[in-house]
Simulated assay, not measured.
Amino acid sequence: MSETWVTLVGNAATSVDYRDSAAGGVARFRLAVTPRYWDRQKESWSDGHSSFYTVWARRSLAMNLAGSVSVGEPLLVHGRLRVRDEERDGQRRFSADIDALAVGHDITRGTSAFRRVVKGDSLLTERAKTSVG
Score class of each variant (00 low, 15 high):
Met1Phe: 13
Ser2His: 03
Glu3His: 02
Glu3Arg: 08
Val6Ala: 09
Leu8Gln: 07
Leu8Ser: 11
Leu8Gly: 04
Asn11Arg: 14
Ala12Asp: 10
Ala13Arg: 11
Ala13Glu: 15
Thr14Asn: 01
Ser15Pro: 15
Val16Glu: 10
Asp17Trp: 08
Asp17Tyr: 13
Tyr18Val: 00
Arg19Lys: 12
Asp20Arg: 07
Ser21Met: 14
Ala22Ser: 10
Ala23Gln: 08
Gly25Val: 03
Gly25Glu: 05
Ala32Met: 06
Ala32Pro: 00
Val33Met: 05
Thr34Arg: 14
Thr34Leu: 11
Thr34Lys: 11
Pro35Thr: 10
Pro35Asn: 09
Pro35Met: 02
Arg36Gln: 15
Trp38Met: 10
Trp38Arg: 12
Asp39Gly: 08
Arg40Cys: 12
Lys42Leu: 12
Lys42Ala: 11
Lys42His: 02
Glu43Lys: 15
Ser44Ile: 02
Ser44Met: 13
Ser44Pro: 00
Trp45Leu: 10
Ser46Val: 11
His49Asn: 05
Ser50His: 02
Phe52Pro: 00
Tyr53Gly: 10
Thr54Leu: 03
Val55Pro: 15
Val55Ile: 14
Trp56His: 09
Arg59Asn: 15
Leu65Ser: 06
Gly67Lys: 07
Gly67Pro: 13
Ser68Ala: 11
Ser68Phe: 07
Val69Arg: 09
Ser70Val: 03
Val71Cys: 01
Gly72Ile: 08
Gly72Cys: 08
Glu73Phe: 01
Glu73Asp: 07
Leu75Ala: 00
Leu75Pro: 07
Leu76Pro: 06
Arg80Val: 00
Arg80Cys: 07
Leu81Ala: 07
Arg82Glu: 10
Arg82Ser: 14
Arg82Gly: 11
Val83Met: 15
Val83Ser: 11
Arg84His: 09
Asp85His: 15
Glu87Thr: 15
Glu87Trp: 14
Gly90Glu: 14
Arg92Leu: 08
Phe94Cys: 00
Phe94Ile: 01
Ala96Cys: 12
Ala96Asn: 08
Gly104Asp: 13
Gly104Leu: 04
His105Cys: 10
Arg109His: 03
Ala113Gly: 11
Arg115Phe: 02
Arg116Ile: 09
Leu124Trp: 10
Thr125Gly: 00
Glu126Val: 12
Ala128Val: 01
Lys129Tyr: 07
Thr130Lys: 13
Ser131Gln: 15
Ser131Lys: 08
Gly133Glu: 09
Gly133Lys: 04
